[in-house]
Simulated assay, not measured.
Amino acid sequence: MNIREIIAKRAALELNDGEVANLGFGMPTQAVNYLPEGVSLIMHTENGAFGIGPKPKYEEANSDVSNAGSEPVTLPPGAAIMSLGTSLGAMRNGYIDVTILGALEVDQKGNIANWAVKRKGLWWPGIGGAMDLTHGTKKIVVTLTHTDKYGNSKIKKEVNLPKTGINCVKTIITEKAVFDVGDDILILREIAPGLTIEEIKEITEADFIVSEDFKEMEI
């Protein structure tokens, strides 16, 4: 199992039966492939639908029916289609129970940066609907690799990149650990098999304490 699969599989355990869920691009969308048995969600896509279904077969795909990442989806009976403005309003006003988002950086205060890197003097590609989701969703789960390609921690004392949302993240999931966000400090809840707490400290810039129910990561 590769790093992305490990993160997606663990992220799926943060989803509960009956929740209204929005999954961000990349690793978050893969979480639905690992839902625990008996868990059924009402899936939302920010471009304007509640109750979307799974990806269709290639020959059954309809280019007019896609999620916010332009990936083909299905609209099973009961799905609701709406304007983008209505969808964004639902996101801002608490109709989404849980959102799993990818991130470039996250910090011990629960801030997330996931929309911009600076290239040729410009910040891009743009903030998109993640800003609305971080404002209005009850539970924000962040997925990302623990370090960048140079070995630098992506889990910061304070994010360096432009923020998407402030003090909003509840849980952080990497291929090496699971943290909850406490009061200006992280709480180490789980650790990947074969690793030690000291090894996690060496690759984590943020301050953290160890949970009383600390255990091995469920992957």
Rank of each mutant, 00 (worst) to 15 (best):
I172P: 01
N22M: 11
N111P: 11
E198T: 14
A61E: 13
G18P: 04
T174N: 05
E46S: 09
K154L: 08
I112L: 09
V39H: 13
L188K: 06
G129L: 07
F50L: 15
G129P: 13
K157G: 07
E202L: 10
T99D: 03
K156G: 04
E5P: 03
I7C: 02
D183S: 10
S83G: 14
G102I: 01
N93G: 01
L84M: 06
V73S: 05
G53A: 03
T74H: 00
I81Y: 00
G69K: 03
L88M: 15
R4N: 11
G78P: 04
P54T: 08
H135V: 15
F179D: 12
S83D: 03
E5Q: 15
F214P: 08
V169S: 02
N2R: 07
G78I: 04
L161C: 04
T147H: 02
A68G: 11
K156A: 05
L75V: 06
K138E: 12
G69C: 12
A113R: 06
E46C: 09
P72N: 07
I219C: 10
A116E: 14
F214Y: 15
A116H: 09
E198H: 08
G102M: 00
E198R: 09
K215V: 09
I42M: 14
E5W: 02
E19I: 05
L41W: 10
V141H: 03
E190F: 01
L13P: 00
E212L: 08
T86L: 06
M82K: 01
Y95T: 08
N62E: 09
T86M: 14
A103N: 01
Q108K: 11
V20S: 02
K215S: 10
R4T: 14
Y58E: 15
A177Y: 07
D97N: 14
N33E: 11
L41I: 12
T134L: 00
W115I: 02
N111H: 06
E158K: 15
T164M: 06
L13N: 15
H44L: 05
M43L: 11
H44Q: 04
F208D: 02
N16M: 09
S211N: 08
